[in-house]
Amino acid sequence: MNVAIVKYNAGNILSVTYALERLGVSPVVTDNIEELQKADRVIFPGVGEASTAMAYLKERNLDTVIKKLEQPVLGICLGMQLLCSYSEENDTTCLSVFDERVVSFLPNGTDKIPQVGWNTISDYSSNLFNDLPENAYCYFVHGYYAALGPDTAATTNYILPYSAALHKNNFYGVQFHPEKSAAVGEKILQNFLDIV
C-alpha cells in the first residue's frame, strides 16, 4: 500500500513513520502534490502552532490540494485541527473540511492545561474504531480542542466533553496520537489502512 505523509513545518513525522513501519507499511514523507494525490492513503500529522502551519501550507498550495483529496485522509493532532473550519490559536482560518471549530481549553481550577497524558475515548461512530472496546485509552497532548459537532466520531472528557475524533466522508481526524497510543493506537492506524 502506498501511504504518503504530508511533509510540512510541524513535528512528529518520524514517530508516525515508525508507527506505520511497525505495521509493515513504508510511507513516503512528501510535499509533492502529485505524490500526495496518487497515494492510497494520506496522513496529515502535526505538532505545532496553527497559524504558522497554515501559512506554510498556503505558500505551497497544499491547502487546496489537501481539501480536494479523495482517498482516505487521516489528520493527527494539529493535522486534525487544521482540517476544521477555524482555530482560536492565533485566530486562524483553517481548511473547513470539518465543520467543527477549534477552541482553547479554559482553566477550571483543577485540570492542567495543556492536557498531557492518557485519557479515554468513547461514543464511537466511525470505522476508525472498529473492534475497539469503549473507553480505550489514548495519548493526548493539546491545549486546544475541536468542539462537539456533526462530524464528531469519538468523544473525550477533559474539563468538558469534546471531539476526540472527527469523520466526514473520506476525511478522518484524531486529536490524540495513535503513533504513541500503544496497541490501541496501532489498531486505529490499522483500521485506517484497512478502510475499503
Partner: peptide
C-alpha cells in the same frame, strides 16, 4: 532516541 522511537509505541 532514534533507536527507541523505531520500536516503542508510547511516549
Amino acid at each position: 532516541a532514534k533507536k527507541i522511537a523505531a520500536v516503542i509505541n508510547i511516549p
